[in-house]
Amino acid sequence: MKIGIILETKEFEKAWNAFRFAVTAKKQGHEVKVFLMGEAVECEGLTHTQYNVDEQLKAFVNIGGEILACGTCLKSRQLNETDACPISTMIDCVNLVVWADKTVTF
């Protein structure tokens, strides 16, 4: 199955769960893409003693997961794209939803 995940928060527990879900789905053999928008574009490097978002994000990338980050949201925060989170557009988000058999939002 093709699973699209749209993440709109950098709230530690929610973002951590979104990436745990992505890792688990990928490990079960699903194709998974994550689109970060709003404050979620700040997830890379985000750590907490109980909810290490960055660790889960990196685990997802390391098993071949694809992450896209909203360019407008990055620019509004004076952030640049990274290898893990390349700059993307709303068209890419729409294409993710069209591509996916199921779309989940966090």
Rank of each mutant, 00 (worst) to 15 (best):
E13F: 14
W16R: 04
M1H: 14
I3G: 04
E44N: 05
W16D: 03
K14M: 14
F21E: 02
I91W: 08
I87F: 02
A18E: 00
V32Q: 03
V41Q: 11
V23H: 05
G45N: 05
E81P: 09
V53D: 02
A100E: 08
I63F: 06
E39T: 10
L74S: 09
N17C: 02
M37N: 01
V41Y: 14
A84W: 01
I87N: 06
H30G: 01
T82G: 11
C73S: 15
A22V: 00
R20G: 01
V61R: 09
G38Q: 01
C93K: 12
D101Y: 03
G45V: 08
G45W: 13
K58S: 09
G45H: 04
I67H: 00
V41L: 14
D83C: 01
A25V: 09
G38M: 13
G45Y: 02
M90W: 12
I6H: 03
G65T: 06
E31L: 09
Q78D: 15
L68E: 01
E11L: 05
D54R: 02
T89D: 09
G4H: 02
M90C: 08
E39I: 07
C43F: 14
K33S: 10
T47P: 00
E42W: 10
A59E: 12
T72L: 05
G64A: 08
M37K: 10
T47C: 10
Q28V: 04
C73G: 09
M90E: 07
G38Y: 08
V53F: 06
H48A: 11
M37E: 05
K33I: 07
E44T: 05
G65W: 07
R77V: 04
N52C: 04
E44I: 02
G64S: 04
N95R: 14
Y51G: 06
A18N: 00
A25Y: 06
G29F: 07
P86L: 12
H48D: 15
L7E: 01
A59T: 08
K2Q: 14
E55L: 12
F35V: 03
E44C: 10
L68Y: 06
N52T: 01
V34G: 00
Q50D: 05
K33G: 01
F21C: 14
N95D: 13
V23A: 10
G65R: 06
V23M: 05
L79S: 07
E31T: 11
K75R: 14
S76E: 15
R77F: 01
T24D: 08
D54A: 03
A18M: 04
N62Y: 00
V94H: 07
I87T: 11
K27N: 13
L46G: 02
N52S: 04
F12T: 04
E31Q: 13
V32F: 12
C93G: 10
T82R: 06
K75Y: 14
Q28A: 13
G65M: 03
E44L: 09
I6S: 05
Q50E: 10
A15H: 09
K58Y: 08
A22L: 11
V61T: 11
D92S: 11
